[in-house]
Write a protein that binds this DNA or RNA. Structure first.
Lengths: 112, 112
DNA sequence: TTGCCATTCAACCAAAAGGTTGAATATATT
DNA sequence: AATATATTCAACCTTTTGGTTGAATGGCAA
C-alpha cells in the first residue's frame, strides 16, 4: 500500500459530512453499528457502507463480539493527513517568502 | 455556501494525486492550462476538468489574459482544512486524555 | 482573410459513490 | 425449536467522477 494511495483514501473518507459525524460519534467511545447509525436519517445499510469507507481508510477499527461489531476510532490516518497538509502549507509559505524576497531584491536593484 | 460543504469540496479536491500534483506545479508560480497539463499522460481536457474541481474548491484561481488562462494557487482552503484536522485531532487527544485519567482513577480506587 | 493556438463545450463511456430494498447469515433469547 | 436481533450481502438505481474524442469559441499572427 503506497503512501499516496493511503492519503487518497483518508481524504476521500473525510470528504463526507456523514462520515465525519460518525467519527465524532465514536469519540464517546466504542459503539455498535446500530448505535452509530441511529441518529442518521438514512438506512442502516447506507451507514454500514460509510463505515466500510472509514475502515478502508483505517480511520475506524472493528472488533467483533458475538453478533455485535464494536467500532472504534484510529488516529493514525488523521495524523498522516495533518502532516501532509502541514508540509504542503510550509512548502507554500517558503515559496511565497522566496517570491517576496526576489521581488524585494528586484525592487532594490532598480533603486540603484 | 456553508463551511461543511466547503470542507467537503476541499478534501474531495485533495483526494486525488493528479490534483495534488497540479497544486505542486503551481508552486513555481502562475501557469497556463497547457503548461500545467504537459507533464501528465492524460488528455488536456482531462486536466482541464481537474482544474475545474480545484477551482470549485477555491484552491486555484484563474486569471484570463487574451486566450491564455493563468492559474494560481490559493491557500485559504488548505488553511481551513488544516484547522479542521487540527481541531479534530486536539479534540480526540483530550478525549483520550480523559479516558486515560478515568482509567487511572479507577485503578487508584481499586488500590484503596 | 486565413489559418494557428489556447481553451472550453458537448457527447459519450466506464467505474465509483451513495443511496434504496429485500434476502441471507450468525448470534441471542424464550 | 422458534423467534428476534445485529449485521452483512446482493441487486438495483441515480448521480458523480474521471477519462476519451471531436467540435466550437475566441484570440493571435501571416
Amino acid at each position: 500500500m503506497s503512501a499516496p494511495q493511503t492519503l487518497d483514501l483518508t481524504l476521500l473518507a473525510l470528504a463526507d459530512p456523514t462520515r465525519r459525524a460518525i467519527l465524532q460519534r465514536l469519540s464517546r467511545g466504542e459503539a455498535r453499528v446500530t448505535e452509530v447509525a441511529r441518529p442518521f436519517s438514512m438506512s442502516l445499510n447506507a451507514v454500514s457502507k460509510h463505515i466500510l469507507v472509514l475502515e478502508r481508510a483505517k480511520l475506524v477499527k472493528r472488533r467483533k463480539e458475538g453478533r455485535d461489531h464494536f467500532l472504534s476510532y484510529r488516529h493514525e490516518p488523521l495524523d498522516a493527513a495533518a502532516k501532509w497538509i502541514e508540509d504542503t502549507r510550509n512548502f507554500w509559505a517558503s515559496r511565497l517568502d522566496t517570491l517576496e524576497r526576489i521581488l524585494r531584491e528586484e525592487d532594490e536593484a532598480k533603486k540603484q
